Computed example of a mutant assay.
Amino acid sequence: MTTALLVAALLMGFFGSPHCLGMCGGLVTAFGLSMKDVSPAKRRALVFTYHLGRLTSYASLGLIAGLIGTTLLEPLMQGNSTPRILLGLVLVFVGVTMLGAPFLNKLERFGMRFWQYLSPLRQKVFPLNTFPRALTAGLLWGFLPCGLVYGALLIAVVAHNPLSGAALMFVFGLGTVPMLVATHETVGWLRDKIGRFRLRQLNGAIMVLSGLAVVAVPMMMSSMHSGHGNGQMDHRSHSAMMADEDTAHDMNQMNHDMTPAMDNTMDHSMHDMGDDKNSMPQSQ
């Protein structure tokens, strides 16, 4: 788990929080109405408690997602570039989703069925006038179907580490907190700024580019390194060929230099043998 991935999760939660407000606005309003009879100080403490419950649910889901990534994907990721490629593709997918592609709508509809199944349990936490009820409400809130949450969970899966998945989802949840605890005036200001400057789309584009870089840059570096290695091999082969040619040239030169000397020596020896024969006494 890198710091860059945690920052990406935090920004994903923050710039996607207008979407969260649309999904969770009614729930937050219901929570607020159920706390109308408590003191302001206790109200703030209860708000903190149910958000803590929500982040705990996110972290638990991230832990499960990371465990799935470890048990199912880890055996396929040993000694190859699959983890990096898969992470890059998921970042591209999530980035395109933040740009507005409705890839996770069907998953949201499936999650809504589970959310409706929890309806009887949700009714029991109202009114939110005690800390156990507020914590339970927050834990249940973490299962509200949301495409942005599902996108973050996909990143947690490819983190291929349960603790990393939990940390990533917790940080993602932190990014959504400012929008969900802001006052009505502040919410309007935040939504206006994020919408005017298209910060969600900008963050989505950054995630797409980051995913492409995660996939492509190491491949390009590997290709360049391979080409450099081949160049070195060609250079070494050329040097070896030059060395062989130099050796052959030296041998030829040595043969050329030695041949006259050997011929002179042999001629001199033959001449001496002839003289010795003439000097021998004649038989009677």
Score class of each variant (00 low, 15 high):
H238E: 10
S226V: 02
Q232M: 11
T247Q: 11
S237I: 03
V215S: 04
A216H: 06
L199M: 04
I206V: 06
R200K: 12
L199K: 01
I194W: 13
G195F: 04
M241D: 14
A213N: 08
D244V: 14
A248D: 07
M224L: 14
A240D: 09
H235D: 00
M219G: 00
H249T: 08
M224F: 15
A213R: 09
N203S: 06
R200L: 14
I206D: 09
M233P: 01
A205T: 07
E245I: 00
V215T: 13
A216C: 07
G227S: 08
S226N: 12
L199Y: 08
D234S: 04
G211W: 13
L202E: 01
M242L: 13
G195C: 03
G204E: 00
V214F: 12
R236K: 15
R196Y: 05
H235S: 02
A240M: 12
M207T: 01
W189T: 08
G229S: 07
F197A: 01
A240G: 03
D244T: 15
T247C: 09
G231K: 10
R196N: 04
A216G: 05
L212I: 02
A243R: 10
M241A: 10
V214N: 02
R191K: 08
D234Y: 14
H235F: 09
L212T: 01
V208L: 10
Q201H: 07
S223Y: 07
L190A: 07
V214R: 03
Q232T: 04
R198K: 07
V214Q: 06
L209V: 03
L190P: 05
M219P: 00
H225Q: 15
H249C: 10
Q232P: 02
H235K: 07
A240L: 14
D234V: 09
Q232Y: 10
M207P: 00
R200I: 11
S210L: 11
A205L: 09
A216F: 15
A248S: 06
S237K: 11
G195L: 05
R196G: 07
V208K: 02
H238K: 12
L202Q: 04
S239E: 12
M221L: 07
R236C: 10
G195Y: 03
V208I: 06
G229V: 00
V215W: 15
L212R: 00
M233L: 09
G231W: 15
